[in-house]
Each structure stands twice: as structure tokens, then as C-alpha cells.
Amino acid sequence: MTYKLILNGKTLKGETTTEAVDAATAEKIFKQYANDNGVDGEWTYDDATKTFTVTE
């Protein structure tokens, strides 16, 4: 399945997608991606749209 991440960081904003077997796997990938890019904030997930959002 395709999952989407919306980044609302102070210095980085944008979107990315990943292919993952489930939401938990996608979350791990996205949290590593956000960490690698210096984004740390409040996480939400919308199962209907398979979208994670992180807001600093």
C-alpha cells in the first residue's frame, strides 16, 4: 500500500510517499525520514487517506 507523509516543519515543508505492508511499517519509515531531516513534532494519522502528518 502507498502511504503519504505531510511535513509541516519549521524549516522543512512538503510531502513524500512510501510503499509499506502496513501503517506501522510506514510510520517507522516516515519517523526516520523526519528525524533525518530535523523535523520533530506532533504526529497524526488518517486511516481513511493513509496519510501521516507531522507538525512542529
Rank of each mutant, 00 (worst) to 15 (best):
M1F: 14
M1G: 12
M1V: 15
T2P: 06
T2R: 11
T2I: 14
T2W: 13
T2A: 07
T2V: 13
T2D: 05
Y3I: 01
K4R: 13
K4G: 04
L5S: 01
L5Q: 00
I6E: 04
I6W: 04
I6R: 06
I6M: 06
I6N: 04
L7I: 15
L7R: 02
L7H: 04
L7V: 15
N8A: 09
N8D: 09
N8I: 13
N8F: 11
G9V: 11
G9Y: 07
K10G: 10
K10I: 12
K10F: 14
K10Y: 13
T11S: 11
T11E: 08
T11R: 08
T11F: 14
T11H: 11
T11V: 09
T11L: 14
L12V: 12
L12K: 10
L12H: 13
K13M: 09
K13H: 12
G14W: 15
E15N: 07
E15I: 12
E15S: 06
E15H: 12
E15T: 10
T16I: 14
T16D: 04
T16W: 15
T16L: 14
T17G: 04
T18R: 05
T18P: 01
T18M: 08
T18V: 15
T18W: 05
E19D: 10
E19T: 14
E19P: 06
E19K: 10
E19Y: 15
A20R: 03
A20V: 05
A20K: 02
A20H: 03
V21R: 08
V21N: 12
V21E: 11
D22I: 03
A23K: 15
A23Q: 10
A24R: 11
A24K: 12
T25G: 08
T25P: 02
T25F: 06
A26D: 00
A26H: 00
A26Y: 00
E27P: 00
K28Y: 11
K28D: 07
I29K: 08
I29E: 05
K31M: 09
K31V: 07
K31R: 14
K31L: 08
K31N: 05
Q32T: 10
Q32M: 12
Q32S: 09
Q32R: 12
Q32N: 07
Y33F: 13
Y33K: 03
Y33N: 02
Y33S: 02
A34M: 06
A34G: 04
A34R: 01
N35H: 15
N35P: 02
N35D: 09
N35I: 15
N35S: 15
D36H: 09
D36A: 13
D36K: 11
D36T: 09
N37M: 14
N37R: 14
G38S: 08
G38P: 01
V39G: 03
V39T: 04
V39S: 03
D40E: 13
D40P: 04
D40Y: 15
D40L: 12
D40M: 14
G41V: 02
G41T: 02
W43D: 00
W43Y: 02
W43V: 02
W43T: 01
W43N: 00
W43R: 00
T44R: 08
T44E: 09
Y45P: 00
Y45L: 02
Y45V: 02
Y45M: 02
D46W: 04
D46N: 10
D47Q: 11
A48H: 13
A48E: 13
A48L: 14
T49P: 02
T49S: 10
K50E: 03
K50I: 03
K50S: 06
K50V: 04
T51E: 04
F52L: 01
F52I: 01
V54G: 01
V54A: 03
V54I: 10
V54D: 01
V54P: 01
V54F: 05
T55A: 06
E56D: 12
E56M: 08
E56I: 09
